[in-house]
């Protein structure tokens, strides 16, 4: 589309490019508010489960893969950092740095997904997948199954968000490489960043709720 570092004309419904930029960012924030409630429903279910069956949930929590979970948290926090750095680079019109940082962020996202996939695989071999191959001899078997039901839903839906995020970041990286952005126009990068940080925040809450449950117990 564009070949020189110019500011694209705003779409016809906007008066100015500035209006368009601020509108896009606000739109993303409203969307994130929707997302909060989307995850909120599952979190209420989780809270109910944990309050109703504290012992079972504690035992289930000790089945989770703490090392993978913690490394993944590290990976995602770092990716948020590189994303914020990328937006900073965009702000200052540093095209090369922007491209690289976006690539690193996308790579960290992929790493997260890879580790997550490995974790799912281990859980499958340990018969921890509810409805498909669940088998557990504990007295809390039923609670553990419910815990893992929510675990797969929460991490699965989070994983879908990560995948979408990686896709968006990859598109941004390609566009950045082609010089689509400059210090006056980088709204798409900024909005993608907002989304990515949100995905990170969701994980920040999932991490203790999934992996740190019952660790201080027997």
């Amino acid at each position: 589309m564009s070949d020189a570092p110019v500011i694209p004309r705003p779409e016809p419904q906007y008066a100015t490019a500035e209006q368009q930029a601020e509108t896009a960012s606000f739109g993303m924030w409203v969307f994130l508010a929707t997302e909060v409630l989307f995850f909120g429903g599952m979190l209420l279910a989780y809270t109910w489960l944990r309050a109703t069956y504290p012992d079972g949930v504690a035992e289930a929590g000790r089945h989770t893969k703490i090392v993978i979970g913690s490394v993944n948290t590290l990976v995602l926090l770092t990716s948020s950092f590189t994303m914020a750095w990328a937006v900073h680079a965009a702000e200052h019109g540093r095209r090369k740095a922007l491209t690289r940082l976006l690539a690193v962020t996308a790579f960290l996202g992929l790493l997260f997904l890879g580790l997550k996939g490995y974790e799912y695989h281990k859980e499958w071999t340990e018969h921890l997948v509810p409805g498909l191959n669940f088998h557990e001899d504990s007295v809390h078997a039923q609670t553990i199954e419910l815990f893992y039901f929510l675990y797969f839903l929460l991490t699965g839906i989070h994983g879908i968000h990560v995948t979408i995020g990686i896709g968006l970041i990859a598109v941004m990286a390609v566009r950045a490489r082609r010089g689509a952005f400059n210090s006056h126009y980088y709204t798409p990068v900024e909005v993608t960043g907002l989304y990515w940080h949100f995905v990170d925040i969701v994980w920040i809450f999932l991490y203790p709720l999934i992996y740190l449950v019952g660790r201080s117990g027997p």
Binding site: P130, T143, E145, F149
Partner: peptide, 12 residues
């Protein structure tokens, strides 16, 4: 679909 869930009293 999977007969596992948090809304069914028979499943806890």
């Amino acid at each position: 679909l999977l007969r596992v869930g948090i809304f069914d009293p028979a499943l806890g």
